[in-house]
Amino acid sequence: MKRAVPGIIAVLMTVPLMFSAGTMTEAAQAKKALAGKSSVALTVLNPQGAVKKSRELAPRLETLRGKKVAMWLSATRGQVFAGKGAELYDLLEKMLKEKFADIHIVPYMALPMKFAPENEVVAAIDKTKPDAVIAGFGG
């Protein structure tokens, strides 16, 4: 049902990009010069809709001091979808131990590094009797 157009249907064109290095700096300076001279107020409405409350989160802890925190990582180091999540967990563990001297960490290596089957993963985490869980990094 559409007109037949024989021959070339695409042409490749390349043009080197040219710009003035000073332009962006000048624009920023102009904005800066205007700052602090407020005389116009613009008020706009929020587009976000309301949402019915239907569930409660588990009660949060008063502090992480003396608590057992399980760090569940849903992927092994080689699984690209999780990025370098394991490195972040290593850093977080170090930071948590520095900030909360008596915190007890269940390291991700001691938990299943996968996200399925779900009941198996939940049972393994639950078995360590954690007070709280840090979950990540995808899946």
């Binding site: 588990a58 802890l61 999780a82 972040l88 939940v122 954690p130 869980v133 840090i134 979950a135």
Partner: peptide, 18 residues
Amino acid sequence: SIAIALEEKGIPTVTLYN
């Protein structure tokens, strides 16, 4: 759903992801 299963067991969780 794993995070939610833990919340429903009364265990507070927080999730990080890309």
